[in-house]
């Protein structure tokens, strides 16, 4: 029987679906009986999405203008 630590250590493989059926069964059994771990799994799974939003970046307009200019000059000189 897995405890919280065993299950949390295996969350990445569990969510990737990359573990043996037996191991996955052990994790599932633990999660069924442990609501803190189930909450933990939900928040672990939500973490990348929240981070992705927090870290989103857009190229400033002047940088994209420079990029176009730079590529045009390089492409021109290559042809």
């Amino acid at each position: 029987m897995y405890n919280c630590k065993d299950s949390i250590n295996l969350l990445l493989e569990f969510l990737d679906g990359e573990m043996s059926a037996e191991e996955a069964q052990h994790v599932k059994e633990h999660l069924r009986g442990c609501s803190p771990c189930l909450d933990f799994l939900r928040t672990y799974r939500a973490t990348p999405g929240l981070c992705k939003k927090a870290l989103a970046a857009k190229m400033p307009k002047e940088v994209s203008e420079k990029l176009t200019e730079y590529l045009r000059s390089k492409i021109k000189s290559a042809s």
Binding site: I8, C37, D39, R45, K53
Partner: peptide, 14 residues
């Protein structure tokens, strides 16, 4: 066992 239980489930905010 987890030493501190999660207080809030913020996963939906994602």
């Amino acid at each position: 066992s987890l030493a501190e239980y999660p207080i809030s489930d913020w996963s939906r905010d994602a």
